[in-house]
C-alpha cells in the first residue's frame, strides 16, 4: 500500500455546548478527490480492549474536513481521535489529535433568553439546547439583589412561568445553563428587566 499520501494535519476539536466536532486541514492532491475517515478510542478501549479504535461510519470516506463526533463522545472520559486520507488506492498514515479530548472541557455559552411580563406574571422563554441542558434562572425585584429567587428549569417548553409580580417595581431576570453530566455551568446571560401591568421588556 503506497503511504506517500501525507497524513491530515492541524487536527483539532471544536466543542461548544456539548456539541463536539473534529476538524483538520485538507490534504492537497492535484486533480484528485481526497476522502477522509475518522476513528475514536475511549478510555475503556485503551485500558480494556487492547487500545482498539472504533470507526465513525458517518465520517467514513467523506470529503469534508470536519466530523460531528457528538454521538460517540458520550461519557466523561478522555478520548483519542484520529483521521486518515484516501485517494483511490492510496492511503495516508493516521493523523492523531494531540492530547486527549474530554467533554468536560466543552465551552458553555449563556442561554438565549427572553423575559415576558404578562399582566402580573413573570415569564421566561429559553432556547432549547438539547437534553443535556438545564437552566438555572435567577429573578429579583430591582434594587433587592440580596433577595434573589431561583428556579431550576429541566424541561424547556416555550414560555415558562416564574412568578407573580406586584404592580410598580421592575423585576429582573438572568439565566445560566447547567450540564449535569459534566457538572458545569455557563456564565449568566444578560440581565433583562420588566414591569407588571403591560410592562415592556427592557434590556439593561
Amino acid at each position: 500500500e503506497d503511504a506517500l499520501l501525507p497524513a491530515p494535519q492541524n487536527i483539532s476539536i471544536l466543542s461548544t455546548n456539548m456539541k463536539h466536532f473534529l476538524t483538520w486541514s485538507p490534504v492537497m492532491v492535484q486533480g484528485e478527490t481526497v476522502t477522509y475517515s475518522v476513528e475514536f478510542q475511549g478510555e475503556y478501549e485503551r485500558e480494556h480492549v487492547n487500545e482498539s479504535w472504533i470507526p465513525i461510519c458517518e465520517c467514513s470516506r467523506i470529503t469534508a474536513t470536519v466530523c460531528n463526533i457528538t454521538e460517540d463522545i458520550s461519557a466523561t472520559v478522555a478520548y483519542n481521535l484520529r483521521v486518515r486520507a484516501d485517494v483511490g488506492a492510496r492511503r495516508s498514515e493516521w493523523g492523531t489529535l494531540k492530547g486527549f479530548f474530554n467533554r468536560i472541557t466543552t465551552s458553555l455559552t449563556p442561554p438565549l433568553m427572553k423575559v415576558i411580563a404578562d399582566g402580573y406574571h413573570l415569564l421566561v422563554e429559553l432556547q432549547d439546547m438539547g437534553p443535556a441542558f438545564q437552566f438555572y434562572v435567577l429573578y429579583w425585584k430591582k434594587g433587592q439583589e440580596s433577595r434573589m429567587q431561583h428556579k431550576l428549569v429541566k424541561e424547556v417548553s416555550s414560555v415558562i412561568h416564574l412568578d407573580t409580580m406586584e404592580a410598580g417595581p421592575d423585576y429582573c431576570v438572568k439565566a445560566q445553563t447547567y450540564v449535569e453530566v459534566i457538572n458545569r455551568s455557563s456564565s449568566f446571560s444578560q440581565t433583562q428587566c420588566v414591569r407588571a401591568q403591560g410592562g415592556r421588556s427592557m434590556w439593561l
Binding site: 404578562d118 406574571h121 415569564l123 428549569v153 429541566k154 424541561e155 417548553s157 416555550s158 414560555v159 415558562i160 412561568h161
Partner: peptide, 15 residues
Amino acid sequence: VSVLNKKTKKRWFFS
C-alpha cells in the same frame, strides 16, 4: 402543566 389564556391566546408552562 400548560395554562392557556383563551382571551390573549398566550400559553404558559409550569413544571
